[in-house]
Design a protein around this nucleic acid. Sequence first.
DNA 1: TCACTTTTGACAATGATTATCACTGAGAAT
DNA 2: ATTCTCAGTGATAATCATTGTCAAAAGTGA
Lengths: 139, 139
Amino acid sequence: MTDAKASPAPRMTKQRAAILDVLDGTDEFRSAQAWHDLLRHDGSSVGLATVYRSLQALAETGEVDAIVTSSGETLYRRCGAVNEHHHHLRCRVCGTADDIEVPEFEEWAARIASERGFARMDHTVEITGVCADCTAKGH
Amino acid sequence: MTDAKASPAPRMTKQRAAILDVLDGTDEFRSAQAWHDLLRHDGSSVGLATVYRSLQALAETGEVDAIVTSSGETLYRRCGAVNEHHHHLRCRVCGTADDIEVPEFEEWAARIASERGFARMDHTVEITGVCADCTAKGH
DNA sequence: TCACTTTTGACAATGATTATCACTGAGAAT
DNA sequence: ATTCTCAGTGATAATCATTGTCAAAAGTGA
């Protein structure tokens, strides 16, 4: 039989290289458009559509993380190297955010992973609510 | 300065009543447009913008739940009654997803909420990895 | 009923993301 | 190194959910 023909053969173009480059510059979540702006400022003239396509492709292979905000925007950030793993508790009204850590959750995630035979686990936890101040103000 | 003007005073109009009515008909998550269609089929001629505005208002007061799908669409459902809350474990390579439940996490989230004085908590948990099959295939 | 405001609805406007499509260049074959 | 090919690119049009606009219609208290 012919070969399985697994990988769609990704090519290394200068624009893809540029994208991977800026991605490595920060580990913050940013929108495709934000990354595009950043690329422009860095002198690269990558097209917006290309940024969208590349981020999507990278997200599918797991090389970048993607999350969708409550306003429907998709944010991306480079994957891995994120040892400083923590989550945020954000107030939906005033927007303040606290860092929180959940060792129990990390352990739980790891357990589920091994139970089901999953590897290279990653997770995103978004926790929102209305803080005490805003609740007091009637929100 | 002038008055504090706290509550904007919500009015009970027939369209709002119709919306609350269909909302009570199902406890599934549906998009604003889907609810609108449903209303139309029920004979009500509520405007789309009105449906959006009402659902938004209801979501703010906590009377309905709102979630954002990975494609950026916002889904709503009547609040309460339903605590069939679960998350997904998704393979980044083949895309298969399993439902998983994390009572511990729910408890933990609730605890954090009360500790910090937060109210009306909500959370999103995205767990991804590479499943056993895909790992075996070298991914 | 009357005045006063909120709510509504039709439709234009946004804004993020995707589709188009001619063109370019990466990588394989020669 | 030179061709050959098709995946990748970019400018822009198209899509689609959602929001803004504003005159007309309908609650609510007096």
